[in-house]
Design a protein around this nucleic acid. Structure first.
Lengths: 358, 358
DNA sequence: CTGAAAGCGCTTACAG
DNA sequence: CTGAAAGCGCTTACAG
């Protein structure tokens, strides 16, 4: 009773040709009002739903892109929102988004990398949004497949020729420069930067920090740690080291919010108050900040915007395969909250009165 | 130079029929070793990649399911992990997962609901994992489409006939019973439950709480709030009310972790210490807990497991469309951390010495 | 073991 | 404005 109804059935019932039905379905202008209405009525009557797969086969398009999250076992809040941005933009174009998680060894040669079937086969995908943490071998393997792709740039390792890529970035360097400058304007001078310079993204952070410091002829202070699993724990450890640097040290720029929260936790545990004793700024504006007091001053990154820009760029590329490589950057915004203040406030509690000359 | 190679090209080059190539591609046993090798060699030579869309059209399968996140503007950490679970399970079966976000009004009749195209059309999907917050109208609209689906049960509104549905749940009731019993065993008697009973999931929480309390013949205490946007803020507000109930009140069972963190923050702001003055337990074991001290005692929910069970059930259903409706429940686990302790500890700080008789 | 043919459900020139 | 035919790239009986 509930059989599959095809375009042929509609044509038969309406007493017209299959092509006429197709024309009606696709809103072509060259059909008489009368046949048009008859066909539409039948379509509604039998609740006909066209088969998109057949359409896609003929038109040689998948109407689908893939969001691939590489080398992350969980989609973190940051990437979650990037995905939402991609999905939202795709939706405005009535395109689908396949979500896929994938792990690969950074050192496997591109031609040995076994890519997910959905990418390797033809027909399933029009293009690819490459997110997560990435290495050149994967990018090159995808390139060899000749499938259009865009990449989320910030978590890219290795010296890829960025000018050969379509990529979207957020401004890690500019953002950290902004937050560092803000601290300097508050009157801080002894500002430390806590990062892991083996990671390009933290390196860009550090660069931004350096730019601000150098411009004000302040001395650079870097605490360079190795972050593997938990940026938070790295922050806690870092805090211990900062303890010895007090009270000269008056402000800390952390590579991201999670590190900053670790620092905050570590400082609190040792009786150091933020922002009274030390000012602290993070980066990203992650969701979890709302759970912690003082509210962290940070650099806001519009993650959904990044997703939207990734999708937008990919669809532009699908429209025009010869689009020259572009690198787009999403700007950032300083969010002043509670973890930063003018320096010296806390020293008063030690019985010292300090004049701050700024 | 890099033209599209089809199965026909392979056949021509190998000097065999198209069906033979197909048989080789699909690893059918009935091909001679010799032709087999010849075909495989050519396939490798020209780097042939079959077109999955054509295969799907013939075999009438999409090899794809859809994870639809309803009525949530962001994929929160909980649902993120459910999605990961779905994706991981699908991957073991070489199936794709389309991610889609969708909003709909709870009160639109099912036949007026405009479903996403990918669901409404044929061919794009084999089945649907329905996640997010849901109402009967959507479920019924999907039902009318005759597309196999499974639903994440916990955030379902309205009195759907659960026994007509394929659903996966986590044990909200049992979990809260467990955490309440744990508090009782610690010696707490005046235990409050903070929930929003207009939401079925919090109601189940409250039921679990009641079961534990009644079994020990303790008096029920409910703080019933309306939670719209921010469970955290609801927790902060709730904390203010709890202040008046001290010191009789000695423990709080919150509807979920985010509420609990709000309570914690609210109590802290008012100088009430957790767990010294009040013990506090949450539910979910969300990611963000790690940022907050004391570490919250909570009920762990294996979110990826939920995702896996959803996918597993859906694929079972695709194998056997007559599978009778089942409701599967993922169990929970009590995670004792730092926010809970024996009652009365804190009273000592008021100069009182209390003997706890348990 | 193998190939020619039909067919999956559409779209698109083409001819009328 | 409309329909018959060819074709998208596969798989699958069917016949040999």
């Amino acid at each position: 009773m509930f059989e599959y109804v095809s375009i042929r059935d509609i044509a038969r019932r309406a007493g017209v040709g299959v092509s006429t039905v197709s024309r009606v379905l696709n809103d072509y202008p060259d059909t008489s009002q009368q046949t048009r209405e008859k066909v539409l009525r039948i379509i509604r009557e039998v609740n006909y739903r066209p088969n998109s797969r057949a359409r896609q086969l003929v038109k040689n398009t998948a109407e689908t892109i893939c969001f691939i999250l590489n080398n992350r076992d969980v989609i973190n809040p940051f990437h979650s929102r990037v995905l939402m941005g991609v999905a939202r933009y795709a939706r405005t174009l009535a395109k689908n988004v396949i979500f896929m998680q994938f792990d690969y060894p950074p050192d496997a040669p591109p031609n040995r990398l076994i890519l997910p079937l959905v990418i390797w086969e033809r027909g399933a995908l029009d293009g690819l949004v490459i997110a997560g943490t990435n290495y050149p071998n994967f990018i090159n393997a995808v390139k060899a497949l000749r499938i259009p792709f865009v990449v989320f740039g910030n978590n890219l390792f290795g010296d890829l020729q960025i000018r050969d890529l379509h990529s979207v970035w957020f401004d890690n360097e500019g953002g950290t420069r902004k937050s560092t400058e803000y601290l300097i304007e508050l009157g801080h001078q002894n500002i430390w930067c806590l990062v892991d310079t083996t990671k390009p993204w933290y390196r860009r952070c550090y660069d931004g920090y350096c730019q601000a410091m150098e411009q004000h002829q302040l001395r650079l202070h870097k605490l360079d740690v190795r972050i593997e699993d938990s940026p938070f724990n790295a922050g806690v450890e870092g805090a211990k080291q900062f303890l010895h640097l007090q009270p000269q040290l008056s402000a800390i720029v952390a590579g991201d919010d999670e590190i900053a929260l670790g620092v905050l936790s570590g400082l609190n545990q040792n009786g150091v108050r933020v922002p009274d004793d030390i000012s602290l700024v993070g980066f990203d504006d992650i969701e979890g900040l709302k759970f912690v007091r003082p509210l962290l001053t940070t650099i806001r990154v519009d993650k959904e915007k990044i997703g939207e820009e990734l999708a937008k760029l990919l669809f532009e590329l699908l429209q025009n395969r010869d689009l020259p490589p572009v690198k787009r950057t999403v700007s950032t915004e300083l969010l002043v909250r509670e973890s930063s203040a003018r320096p010296g406030r806390g020293l008063g509690s030690n019985g010292l009165s300090i004049e701050v000359v700024s």
